[in-house]
């Protein structure tokens, strides 16, 4: 098979985009789960190359009218802010969805918000779980 290498950084063809390796973007993954499952989900997300997480106690307000009148509407929740690399976000969300469905008492909601800026190369490497050579570092993954 004849394989022609694609020139990096130059236009390969008239209608093809340039073949450059762009910096991997980061996303803010927000996970809202029951309070007693906070540590579990924090640990689970670490396996997707997440190096920085922020855990907050919160309470949910969704509920039925009946629960509202009985005063049982509010429930203790944990909100988890995780910075995840864009290419790992779909896997992380799919993994979370499976846990939400299968884990007893593990129901929750998760969504990603794109980030538009970050400052500091070292911070970026830390957050995107990459070392200086661009290789992924899963040394501390579970």
């Amino acid at each position: 098979m004849n394989h022609t290498p694609t020139p990096r950084g130059k236009r390969a063809g008239k209608n093809e985009p340039p073949q450059v390796s762009a910096v991997k973007k980061l996303k803010l993954l927000i996970t809202i789960v029951n309070k007693n499952k906070d540590e579990f989900y924090a640990d689970y997300l670490q396996s997707f190359g997440v190096n920085l997480q922020l855990l907050m106690r919160a309470h949910g307000t969704a509920g039925s009218e009946m629960l509202h009148y009985m005063g049982l509407e509010e429930s203790e929740k944990a909100v988890l802010f995780s910075l995840v690399r864009e290419d790992y976000a779909p896997q992380a969300l799919a993994g979370l969805e499976e846990k939400f469905r299968t884990l007893r008492g593990g129901k929750g909601i998760a969504y990603t918000v794109p980030l538009t800026g970050i400052i500091g190369a070292a911070i970026y490497q830390f957050l995107s779980n990459q070392n200086k050579t661009g290789k992924e570092d899963f040394g501390n993954a579970i």
Partner: peptide, 10 residues
């Protein structure tokens, strides 16, 4: 409001 590009668990 912030944009949300993927959601699971709804």
């Amino acid at each position: 409001a912030l944009p949300v590009d993927s959601v699971v668990g709804l």
